[in-house]
Structure formats: structure tokens, C-alpha cells
């Protein structure tokens, strides 16, 4: 287990944490990419899913887009985007690829959540004279929130994973520590980078789990 000891000493050596290629900087890039892309993909996917769910249309689209997202390799999309004219614009190929892969879980879960709202409740709200907009904002979205948040959680974890792969095509983030380790044939560094990425992904998942546990009952769902 020499490699593990070497990976540990890589992780505990201060020089690996500072500087432009250091862990702190890479972590910042990874976090930035994840958050920015999560915000963009939520801004795109959630309104579409909520409106489709409200109208009860486009169910096939919402389900199929999820299957398509699984079948298309992330790596392939990243490289394809890199070779298009967009590829010369810094982080944009990475951001576009990340958003593309975060949209399916958001769309599918939010749509399923909206359709899962008890029809009797919807009828009652209509009977009380609610307009479509009021029904959407005050009844359907609150009741669908647990599943919408599940979608956001899956998308966030997916974003962390995709951002890691982006390092293969020259994107920033913690994945760069791994790819640099491979290029240097430095197994301890590869392992150290992988541990950092794994811990980061688990932390992101943990934060969402915490929100779910500590949130008010209607966020937790089921309850």
C-alpha cells in the first residue's frame, strides 16, 4: 500500500494546495462550474418542465430525453464541442456540455413531480376559482417540490462528475489533478486527485441530503 501512503503525503503537502494548479484553485474552478451550470440548467429546464407538467403535455419528451442523456457519452459530447468553432472560446464547450447533461434529470423529475400531484387537489383548487398561474404557483409546485429537488440533486451530482471528465478535454476543475497525474505517470497524484473528486461529489450529495432532512416537512415529501 505504498501508493496510498504516497497519495496521503501528496494530499498533506502544502505546496500541492497553493498556486494556479493547486487544489484550492482547482476546487474553486470545480465549484464555480458546478454552481454556474446548475443555475443555467435549472433556469432552462425547470420552467419548461413546470409548464409542460401543468398542461399535461410532452410527457414522452420528458421521459425520452432522460434515456437519450444516458446513451450519449459525456466524453464524446465534450470532444465534439471542443472541435466545433465554440471550442476556441475558453470554458464554453465545458459549460454547454455540462448544462446539456444536467437538463435531463431536472426535466424528468420536475415533470413527473408535477404530474404526480393529486388530481383531486387540482380539481379542488380549480373549484375555488384559482387561475392557471395561481394553481401552478400555489398548489402544484409546492406539492411537486420534493421530486423537483430530487432532480436538482441528481443534476448537481451529475455536474460534478461531468466537470471532472471535462479535464480530459482541457477544462478546469479537480479532474485536472487526475489528468496531470496520468500525464506524469504519477499514480499517487492520480489517487489523491480521485479522492478529492470523490469527497467533493459525496459532499455535494450530503448537502442536498441535509437540506432534505432539515427542511420543512413539505420539502421532505412523504412525511
Amino acid at each position: 500500500m505504498n501508493t496510498l501512503a504516497a497519495a496521503w503525503s501528496w494530499l498533506t503537502s502544502a505546496s500541492n494546495w497553493s498556486g494556479s494548479g493547486g487544489v484550492w484553485n482547482r476546487l474553486g474552478e470545480h465549484l464555480f462550474l458546478t454552481v454556474v451550470c446548475l443555475v443555467i440548467s435549472c433556469a432552462i429546464a425547470l420552467p419548461v418542465a413546470l409548464v409542460l407538467g401543468h398542461l399535461g403535455r410532452g410527457g414522452a419528451l420528458a421521459v425520452n430525453i432522460s434515456n437519450a442523456g444516458r446513451a450519449v457519452p459525456t466524453f464524446a459530447v465534450l470532444v465534439l464541442l471542443l472541435l466545433t468553432p465554440i471550442g476556441t472560446h475558453g470554458q464554453w464547450p465545458t459549460i454547454i456540455a455540462l448544462v446539456l447533461f444536467a437538463i435531463p434529470p431536472l426535466l424528468t423529475n420536475a415533470y413527473v413531480g408535477m404530474r404526480g400531484v393529486d388530481r383531486d387537489v387540482v380539481q379542488a383548487a380549480r373549484g375555488m376559482g384559482m387561475t392557471g398561474g395561481q394553481l401552478l404557483r400555489r398548489v402544484e409546485v409546492p406539492l411537486a417540490l420534493p421530486l423537483i429537488l430530487t432532480g436538482v440533486r441528481i443534476a448537481a451530482v451529475q455536474l460534478v462528475a461531468t466537470a471532472t471528465i471535462a479535464a480530459l478535454v482541457g477544462g478546469g476543475g479537480l479532474g485536472r489533478i487526475i489528468t496531470a497525474g496520468f500525464n506524469l505517470a504519477d499514480t499517487p497524484q492520480v489517487v489523491a486527485g480521485a479522492v478529492l473528486v470523490a469527497v467533493f461529489a459525496l459532499l455535494v450529495e450530503g448537502v442536498f441530503e441535509l437540506v432534505r432532512l432539515l427542511g420543512p416537512r413539505w420539502v421532505r415529501g412523504g412525511g
Partner: peptide, 10 residues
């Protein structure tokens, strides 16, 4: 939850 690239690296 562990990203694929990290899994292969581990």
C-alpha cells in the same frame, strides 16, 4: 456518486 473518472483513478 463517485464520478467515473475518479472511480477509474482510484
Amino acid at each position: 456518486t463517485i464520478p467515473s473518472l475518479a472511480m477509474f483513478s482510484l
